[in-house]
């Protein structure tokens, strides 16, 4: 799964942050996952915790919280806003899979529900990022 690559990015980011702060332990990590990524948060949590095992001292008893951010899209042509969840069901299986890999491919497989145009932006709910870290 390419979620392993995304989890690797999360861990690398936390390790660099911990090193810059000379942290001896990371007590809590809050990760935000954009809805358009279509990532199962439980699976993602499991994968990140697998990476913890390579750094047992730093990640002892670390609380990992993963939250999903709802995805909204905004049409640059007519200004209409809509939620990814409202149109997700209309995507073909492969189309959804493509967006799962590269969210920008929403432009290939979705259109503005109002004006039917392809010129929209992913306003919120794209990407995977570390929102907060607590450390000692």
């Amino acid at each position: 799964m390419h979620e392993w690559a995304l989890a690797d990015g999360i861990i690398s980011t936390v390790l660099a942050f911990a090193e810059s702060k000379k942290a001896s332990r990371v007590s809590e990590i809050v990760v935000r996952v954009g809805e358009i990524q279509q990532i199962n948060t439980e699976t993602f949590k499991f994968i990140i915790e697998e990476f913890f095992k390579n750094h047992e001292r730093l990640f002892r008893d670390t609380k990992l919280r993963i939250h999903e951010e709802k995805c909204t899209l905004e049409c640059k042509n007519c200004g209409h806003e809509w939620g990814f969840s409202s149109v997700k069901g209309e995507l073909g299986g492969d189309d959804g899979e493509s967006i799962h890999f590269i969210p920008e491919l929403a432009h290939n497989f979705m259109r503005c529900p109002n004006c039917k145009g392809p010129d929209f932006r992913i306003k919120e709910g794209r990407g995977v990022w570390v929102e907060r870290i607590k450390w000692e």
């Binding site: 995304l6 999360i10 980011t13 809050v30 907060r132 870290i133 607590k134 450390w135």
Partner: peptide, 22 residues
């Protein structure tokens, strides 16, 4: 216990793995 500013992402985690992938 210290805590980062939660109002903005710490860093785009993709940047940290590009060089590793290459």
């Amino acid at each position: 216990m210290k805590e980062s500013n939660g109002n903005k992402p710490i860093e785009d985690p993709r940047h940290s793995v590009v060089e590793k992938k290459l």
